[in-house]
Every structure is written in C-alpha cells, then in structure tokens.
Design a binder for these strands. Structure first.
Length: 199
DNA sequence: CAGTGGATGCTCT
DNA sequence: GAGCATCCACTGT
C-alpha cells in the first residue's frame, strides 16, 4: 500500500470527473479504488444522468440529492433498501447532478479486513455487488459528500500496461429507463455482480 | 442454476 | 403509504 499512498500526483482528481458521466463510468473500469487499507480494481460501474428517470436527481434538488448537485469528484453515498450503503462518484460539471455507481471490485488489498467485515467467503464474493463492496471496505453514509481525491479515499488510474476490454449492457435492479446501455464491465472478470452482462 | 420472498429504513408523494 | 440503483436464504429443478 505504501507505494500507492505516496503517489499523490497520479490520483484521479476533479478534472477526471468533470466530463460526460458515461465516459467517466467507462474509463473507471480498470482504475484502482482504495479506502483505508482495503481496495481493488474497479470492474463494474453504471452511469446515471440527470435526465434519466432512474437517477435520484431526476426529481430535482432535495435534501438527499444535495451532493449530486454539487461539484464533481465527490462521493454520493445513500441507503438502499434500508440496509445497504451504495457508493457513487459525482461526475459532469457542477449542477448537472450525474453520478457513477460503483458496482464491483476485484479485491487486491486488505482482503483479510474485508473478510472480517463480510465473513469467510471466496474472494469473488467479497466485492461483487454495490452493497457488498461498501460493506467490505467499511464505507457508510458518513462518507456522503467526501472528496475522492483525499484520504481515506485513493483513486488511481489504469496502469500503463492495462489491456482490458470494456463491455456494456443494461443497468441492474432498476425499473425505469431499463433499456439504456449504461452498465460497464471488465470483460472476463469473475468479480462482476452478475456472471455476464446481457445486452 | 432460476425463481421467490423477507429484511429493513429512508425519501418522496 | 408506496417504492426502492440489494443481499441472502430457501425452494425446486
């Protein structure tokens, strides 16, 4: 971890997120997300834009969506089904209220800590879902609005040798705008929340 | 492997 | 009061 922790200059910053949310969601595949001692490679994301019935910001500015309407490069964390904290990255210029849902990681660091939180289970079940990965990393609602470019968050770009292929499909678990192909995944990864992305 | 239903709490109508 | 950007256990192949 120490080498990543000192690579401050290569962190993803607000400029990375200040672009099309769909492009950001695609380019996050293969990037590395750390939170404290734990982290891994992002292998699945979904994008949500403001003119999108499935996006929380669709109804406008409310107390819950305040962070969504704020500047890019911050964490939007909310409670799903009364149980799970779901982690999103705010994207697009401030006020556009778009975000990327982080759906799955391939764990690389702090696997023992993850198992302590998630229970004894195979690596492929530690972070293969949006609720699972927040539990594994120990992220909760207290991180809503947190700056992603400072500790305990650490976001690093794809390594130079990265040769992954990004595949797309329909988003998961929503009832509105189901047809929009805004789910992105790393081809062949066993850590994705459902075995295959079905376009 | 596929389908079903319960847990659980907050937001918005 | 309805509806969730989910997960897990359980059922029946």
């Amino acid at each position: 971890m120490s080498s990543e922790g000192t690579a401050t200059e290569s962190r993803l910053t607000a400029e990375f997120f200040d672009r099309s949310v769909h492009l950001v969601a695609r380019e996050l595949i293969g990037c590395r997300l750390f939170y404290g001692d734990c982290g891994g490679v992002i292998v699945e994301t979904e994008s949500y834009e403001r003119d999108d019935p499935a996006c929380h910001a669709y109804v406008g500015l409310t107390e819950r969506t305040e962070v969504l309407f704020g500047p890019p490069g911050r964490a939007y964390v909310y409670l799903s089904y009364g149980i799970h904290s779901l982690l999103n990255f705010v994207a697009e210029p401030e006020g556009e209220a778009a975000a990327v849902l982080i759906r799955a990681l391939a764990p690389t660091s702090g696997v023992e800590s993850m198992r302590a939180r998630r229970g004894e289970r195979p690596d492929r079940d530690l972070c293969s879902g949006p609720g699972k990965l927040t539990e594994a990393l120990g992220i909760d609602l207290s991180q809503n609005g947190a700056d992603l470019s400072t500790d305990p968050f650490l976001l690093l770009p794809r390594g130079d040798g990265w040769r992954g292929q990004v595949i797309t499909g329909r988003r998961v678990g929503i009832t509105k705008a189901v047809e929009r192909p805004w789910r992105f995944g790393l081809a062949g990864s066993p850590h994705i929340s459902k075995p295959a992305i079905r376009p």
